[in-house]
Amino acid sequence: MSWTVAGVELQSRLLLGTSHYPSLQALGDAVHACGTEVLTVGLRRLQPEAGGGSSFWQRIQSLGCRVLPNTAGCHSAQEAITLAQMAREIFGTPWIKLEVVGDDYTLQPDPFGTVEAAKALVRDGFAVFAYTSDDLIVAQRLRDAGCAAIMPGAAPIGTGRGPLNPQALMTLRERLPDAVLVVDAGLGRPSHAAQVMEWGFDAVLLNTAVAQAGDPVRMARAFAQGVDAGRGAFEATLMPERQAAQASTPTVGMPFWHAVE
């Protein structure tokens, strides 16, 4: 079932990062295995003797996906805005995954800098995919700023621990029913992806869980299946939970019922 973000219809609800793969070949194979249509990329200082860093970029272009450049590592709104402008020129896309780091140890996003940068970038014509915490009020501010997608973390970046605060994530979905919500960061297992998709999130964004798997290609496929299963369950509507047991097999017509010896 397709979905739409920033005015673009996508078939896959899995967005994939491009770091930490054993090789560019493994990255390419993982992309094909999971059917993702969106890849995140970054920008870093280039020394001329490094040769332009073009082999990676050429490989990414050959995969035929949309790119979602990030502002990873930026510590202020101004840094993120400038890097976003640089990314738009290099990658030729107004899409930007906005990250403003608030704490280097936990990599927790700075909500104030993120909202400030989001407002400026939206005014400048960017489609902002904002990485944020699971805080509802920050998410509301990002929605009000006009972000294309709001992307709460499930757990700290790269930990693979899965949703640490399900209540907060479910509250985001409940309170922002019309926003595009993507769980970004902290997912480690396909079951984590299935879980958040069951809660109604529009998509997930992964990197380490696939790239650092024993077999990234099979793991990419497994995550795609998890995403599909979770989304399918959400659309099918889960049964209501009950406290007490209730027999599945009808009791009417049960043989030996009230049988007297």
């Binding site: 990329v41 860093g53 990030n70 990197n207």
Partner: peptide, 10 residues
């Protein structure tokens, strides 16, 4: 002056 180029990213 900063000069940047594409790299992998999450």
């Amino acid at each position: 002056i900063d000069v940047v180029a594409p790299i992998t990213g999450g």
